[in-house]
Lab assay of single mutants.
Amino acid sequence: TYYTVKSGDTLNKIAAQYGVSVANLRSWSGISGDLIFVGQKLIVKKG
């Protein structure tokens, strides 16, 4: 599943919304830090 980052989103908010960890969200999407951008597509795998 892809999630497109919206204004005001954080990795914590997105992870909580999908019931996954921030570490997994980073790993799946190839992100090393906490910086995400509006319009960026993140990969989300539901448990």
Rank of each mutant, 00 (worst) to 15 (best):
Q17H: 11
G8K: 04
V5E: 01
V38W: 04
F37Q: 10
S29D: 03
N24P: 00
F37A: 09
V44R: 01
V38M: 07
T10R: 03
G19S: 09
S27M: 14
A15G: 06
L25Q: 00
A16S: 11
V44L: 09
Y18R: 04
Y3G: 02
K45R: 13
G47E: 13
Q40I: 05
D9W: 01
G30A: 08
N24Q: 15
G8L: 04
V38A: 10
A23Y: 06
Y18T: 07
G30Q: 10
L35C: 12
T4R: 07
A15Q: 01
R26N: 05
V38T: 09
S29Y: 03
S27G: 09
Y2V: 14
V44K: 02
W28A: 07
G47Y: 12
S7N: 11
W28V: 05
L42M: 07
T4A: 06
A16D: 12
V20R: 01
Q17A: 13
L11M: 07
Y3T: 03
I14F: 01
Y2S: 10
I31H: 04
K46E: 13
L11W: 07
T10F: 04
S32W: 09
L35A: 13
K13C: 11
D9N: 01
G47A: 13
I31L: 14
Q17T: 11
V44H: 02
I31A: 04
A23H: 11
T1S: 12
Y3P: 01
G8Y: 05
Y18I: 10
T4C: 10
T1Q: 14
D34P: 06
D9F: 01
A23E: 15
D34H: 09
K13R: 10
T1W: 15
Y2K: 07
Y18V: 09
W28E: 05
K45Q: 13
V5N: 01
G30Y: 07
V22Y: 02
D9I: 01
Q17M: 15
G39H: 04
G30P: 04
Q40M: 11
G30R: 07
T4G: 03
A15K: 00
R26V: 12
L11S: 00
K46C: 14
T1G: 11
V22K: 07
G30W: 05
N12T: 14
Y18Q: 08
S21H: 05
S21L: 07
N24F: 07
N12M: 14
Y2C: 15
V5I: 06
I14C: 02
V38G: 04
S27C: 13
G30K: 09
L25M: 06
G39M: 03
K45Y: 14
Q40R: 03
G19A: 08
Y2T: 11
R26E: 07
V20C: 11
Q40W: 05
G33Y: 06
R26Q: 13
L11I: 09
V22W: 02
T1C: 15
K46W: 15
G33M: 07
I14Y: 00
W28P: 02
V22F: 02
W28S: 06
Q17L: 14
T4L: 09
S29L: 05
Y3M: 04
T10W: 03
K41L: 14
Q17D: 11
S27E: 15
S29C: 05
V22D: 04
V38R: 05
G47V: 13
I31F: 09
L42G: 01
S29R: 01
V22Q: 05
Q17E: 14
K46N: 13
T1E: 15
G8R: 04
L42N: 01
K41A: 08
N12R: 12
K41P: 05
I36L: 12
T10H: 04
V5A: 05
K45T: 11
N12P: 14
V38I: 11
G47F: 12
T1F: 15
G39F: 04
F37D: 08
Q40S: 05
L42A: 01
S29W: 05
K41V: 15
Y18M: 10
L25H: 00
I14S: 00
N12H: 14
G33I: 07
L25V: 09
V20D: 02
V20W: 03
Q17I: 13
